[in-house]
Design a protein around this nucleic acid. Structure first.
Lengths: 220, 220
DNA sequence: CTTTTGTTTTTTGTATACAATATACATTAA
DNA sequence: TTAATGTATATTGTATACAAAAAACAAAAG
């Protein structure tokens, strides 16, 4: 049998979702700006149907507000947004870490990912760091044994912002330390420690983002 | 000016969502059963478009699994489902309670709702209990100040199962006690207590459901 | 009989058409 | 002028039409 790689055509609604979500996070829309189905459909050269579906996904993920018979409103990606977003993410990630620590599944991949991060010379490139960070968290989501929790955290992940805010070297090493401690908690089945450490870790990310947001404000 | 009540036509996708969600929770579909867009559309006498939207909502809420170019699969509403569902709900509700306790908003409505529950003679009718219970939790969601958290918890609420499992009088009084304690925590700004108490409260609900599921299994 | 290949049927993904609601503008009355 | 009403226009909600993929089935080759 000849090996093959599955050619998967991602459905249009997903592709539009991703594009729009990134655009919103990157601030390509003004806060509170109204966007219409038809406008977006024309912009991306597709029909309104998949765009409408994408709108509903984005609304469920908290990036748009839908109004009956009216155009959608783009949520403001500001301090308030990040506070709410990370408040939720902190407890969900914490619970995932708890579940991973409680699980008897094979945890060698988590160790492997961490080793990969440890042996990379600092400062990593932005792409490398993003990739490592994402792999680390995703591995914990898998290990937690709660597929729904995995799905929720996946939907909450905002690739563009989450780590573009981590340029400095000591921040990267702080993350590595934090992750190292989590690996220990999870391997030693210390659920409560994993929960607390992960919660603090995520709140740390929030504080970092808030700091950067604040600096951005002072410049302007 | 003559007072009026807004006539709001709920969009079809929402109505279909609710109907299907209830049907799934009530076990009207077999676990793992395949359901097709066209079948459901015909069954409810609507076109495929709103049904398709409803499917995507239900998939995001964890009640269906969608496969590209194939029919959807109904998730099994079993012990595994409830464990995962309540694991998530417990931390989210706990965080909401935390936020409500931290908030400086007016909390008189929560007190009012609790008084309403306290003064009703036990055992309440199922409808009364459901209504009180829902009002109580919803009020905390509002008070927590995190609209996104509010939305997530709303989507997770499964009206049919959550309280149909509460027929006995001492269970109702246990819930009332639990709620009374939460009201105190929240009014006294005791965030950590509110978090822990709410977490335990929700896990209590889970255990109750698991017990009932177990009894049902023995009968069969 | 089993496996493979080709054809038909069904079902989904996307585009378009139509109906209902909301917005913008113009017209009229005060 | 200002407020109110009517009409035109645009946008959304829903239904239908068409294209592509999957499933079911039949026929042919081994």
């Amino acid at each position: 049998m000849i090996p093959y790689t599955k050619i998967e055509a991602t459905p249009l609604n997903e592709r539009i979702s991703t594009l729009l979500k990134d655009a919103i996070i990157e601030g390509q829309f003004k806060a509170g700006e109204e966007i219409s189905l038809t406008a977006i459909a024309e912009r991306y050269g597709v029909s309104r149907t998949p765009v409408r579906e994408a709108f509903q996904h984005l609304a469920k993920d908290g990036f748009l507000t839908l109004r009956m018979n009216k155009s959608a409103i783009v949520v403001a990606i500001d301090e308030h947004f990040f506070r709410n977003h990370y408040e939720i993410r902190s407890v969900l990630e914490a619970q995932a870490a708890y579940g991973a620590a409680a699980s008897d599944a094979d945890k060698s991949e988590l160790v492997r990912i961490q080793e990969l991060g440890e042996k990379t010379k600092l400062p990593m490139t932005l792409d490398d760091f993003r990739s490592y960070n994402m792999m680390f968290h995703r591995c914990i989501w898998r290990l937690c044994g709660n597929e729904r929790l995995h799905q929720l955290l996946s939907d909450m992940w905002v690739s563009s912002y989450s780590s573009s805010a981590l340029p400095e070297i000591h921040r990267q090493s702080r993350t590595l330390n934090s992750h190292r401690r989590l690996v220990n908690d999870i391997i030693n089945h210390d659920c409560d420690a994993a929960f607390e450490h992960m919660k603090r870790h995520i709140i740390g990310s929030l504080n970092n983002i808030l700091k950067i947001l604040d600096e951005g404000k002072k410049e302007a």
